[in-house]
Computed example of a mutant assay.
Amino acid sequence: MRDIGFIGLGTMGLAMCRRLVEAGHDVAVWNRTPRVGAELVALGGRRVLLEEALGSAVVFSMLSNDAAAEAVFSEENLRLMPAGSVHVGFESLSLAAADSATARHAAAGVDYVAAPVIGRPPVAAAGQLNILLAGKRAAADRVEPLLAELCSRTWYLGDRPRLANLVKICVNYNLIHTLQALSESVAIAERGGVDPALLVELLNSTLYPGPAYGGYGREIAARRYEPVGFSVELGLKDLSLAEQAAAETGTPLPTAPVLREMFERTLAEPDIAELDWAAIAEIVRRERATS
Rank of each mutant, 00 (worst) to 15 (best):
S61D: 11
V123L: 12
I118P: 01
H87E: 07
A124E: 05
S85P: 12
Q128A: 15
A53W: 14
M62D: 12
A114E: 07
A107V: 01
A126M: 09
H105K: 03
M81Y: 08
A97R: 01
G109T: 07
A69K: 00
L93K: 00
A57C: 13
V88H: 07
V86G: 04
E76D: 11
S100P: 09
I131H: 06
N65R: 03
I118M: 11
P82K: 14
P122L: 06
A96D: 05
G109F: 08
E76N: 09
S64M: 13
Y112D: 03
G119T: 06
G55H: 13
A53V: 04
D99Q: 14
V88A: 09
F73E: 04
V113G: 00
L54P: 06
A126I: 05
L129N: 10
M62R: 05
N130P: 02
D111G: 13
V72H: 00
A71H: 11
G55S: 14
N77T: 14
S64K: 10
L133H: 00
G89R: 06
A68E: 14
E76L: 12
S74Q: 11
E52R: 15
I118C: 06
L78I: 08
S64E: 12
E75W: 02
P82E: 08
V58S: 09
D66Q: 03
A96W: 00
N77P: 13
A53L: 07
F90D: 02
F73N: 03
A69M: 12
S61K: 05
I118A: 02
A106Y: 04
G119I: 11
A125V: 08
L132W: 07
R120A: 08
N77I: 12
R104N: 06
A114I: 02
L63M: 14
S85T: 13
D111R: 10
P82C: 07
R104T: 05
R120E: 06
N77H: 15
V59S: 05
A103W: 01
A125I: 07
A97F: 01
V58I: 15
G55V: 10
G55T: 14
L132A: 06
S92N: 12
A67V: 10
G89N: 11
V88M: 07
M62S: 14
N65L: 10
L80A: 13
V58Q: 08
A106Q: 02
E52C: 09
L133F: 06
V113W: 00
I118S: 05
S94A: 08
R104K: 14
A126R: 10
S56V: 08
I131L: 13
S92E: 02
G119L: 12
A97E: 00
L54K: 10
V59F: 08
S100L: 13
A67G: 08
L80F: 14
S100W: 03
L133W: 05
G84N: 06
S74I: 10
V110S: 09
M81N: 03
G89E: 10
V117H: 03
E91I: 04
A101N: 03
E75A: 15
A106P: 13
A71P: 11
A101L: 11
L80Q: 15
G84A: 07
A107E: 03
V59E: 12
L80H: 15
L54W: 14
